[in-house]
């Protein structure tokens, strides 16, 4: 019984929710930045032309949004 109570309590703690929500927020910020930069690449990408075509900010932002979104929903409070 005590073990069950502890599991419930640690689920309320939602460490993974904190990770998810932060990654989701960062993902959204990066996606918006990446879209804004799509046709106006930052200085470091101008100097490395191969990097410019990869749009790392946008795609990294998409990845973090997906990861953060899944974790935020999966471990949301009160679930």
């Amino acid at each position: 019984m005590k073990e069950q109570e502890r599991e419930v309590e640690s689920a309320e703690l939602s460490i993974w929710f904190f990770c998810g929500i932060l990654m989701l927020a960062y993902g959204v910020v990066l996606v918006v930045t990446g879209i804004a930069e799509y046709n106006h690449p930052p200085a470091n990408e101008v100097l490395l032309p191969w990097l410019e075509s990869l749009h790392p900010t946008l795609w990294w932002g998409v990845l973090l949004t997906a990861f953060g979104g899944v974790y935020s929903v999966r471990f949301r409070p009160g679930r």
Binding site: L30, T33, E37, P41, P42, N44, E45, L48, P56, T57
Partner: peptide, 10 residues
């Protein structure tokens, strides 16, 4: 070298 605004902040 590789990170522009946003990625650098991260």
């Amino acid at each position: 070298r590789y990170c522009g605004p946003g990625l650098l902040g991260l």
